[in-house]
Measured scan of single mutants.
Amino acid sequence: RELEKFANEFKVRRIKLGYTQTNVGEALAAVHGSEFSQTTICRFENLQLSFKNACKLKAILSKWLEEAE
């Protein structure tokens, strides 16, 4: 439930900031050390990743959002 809420909020905030899914994937290299594909970001936003992978990505995306805003 919390993950679903974060995924929805993330998408809204990403769009408000003017980032595409591809931009986010590339920008994550600075935060995490490796890029993520547009497909991975899309699957996260649509809750199509495994729970374990989504939880890992949530932590990375939270950190990125803090820096982007």
Rank of each mutant, 00 (worst) to 15 (best):
E66L: 08
S62Y: 05
E67T: 08
I15N: 06
K16C: 12
I41V: 06
L28I: 09
T20K: 01
N23Y: 13
V24R: 01
C55K: 11
N23M: 15
F10C: 01
L49Q: 03
S50F: 04
S50A: 09
I60H: 07
K58I: 00
A54S: 14
F6P: 02
I41R: 05
F51H: 14
K16N: 12
L3T: 02
S50P: 15
R14G: 02
N46E: 08
K63N: 08
N8F: 10
T20H: 00
E66W: 06
C55N: 10
A27S: 12
K5R: 12
V24F: 01
V12K: 12
L17H: 07
V12C: 11
L17P: 02
E2G: 08
Y19C: 06
S62V: 11
K16L: 07
N46C: 03
V12Y: 09
W64C: 11
I41M: 07
E66P: 05
L61Y: 03
K58H: 08
T39W: 08
F36E: 00
K52E: 14
K56T: 09
T39V: 12
T39I: 09
C55H: 12
T22L: 11
F44G: 00
F6M: 03
L28V: 10
A30E: 12
G33W: 05
E45I: 02
S62L: 11
F6V: 00
K5P: 00
E35V: 09
S34A: 12
L61M: 07
A68C: 03
K16T: 02
A27V: 05
N23C: 11
F6C: 00
E69Y: 04
A54C: 08
L65K: 03
F6I: 00
G25K: 02
I41K: 02
A59D: 14
K56R: 13
L65Y: 02
L61E: 05
R13V: 04
K5S: 09
Q21G: 00
K63C: 07
E2F: 00
K63T: 14
T20C: 01
R14C: 03
S50C: 07
A29T: 14
R13L: 01
V12H: 14
N23L: 07
N53K: 15
I15P: 00
K56F: 06
E35N: 11
F10Q: 07
L65D: 02
N53R: 15
I15Y: 03
A68H: 10
F36H: 03
R14W: 02
E26G: 03
Y19G: 07
S62R: 08
F36M: 09
L28S: 04
E9M: 12
A68L: 03
K58D: 05
S37W: 01
Q48A: 05
K52F: 08
I60E: 06
T20Y: 00
L49G: 05
L47D: 04
A68Q: 12
S37I: 04
S50K: 11
I41P: 01
F36K: 03
F6E: 03
L3W: 04
E2P: 07
A29M: 08
Q48H: 05
L28E: 04
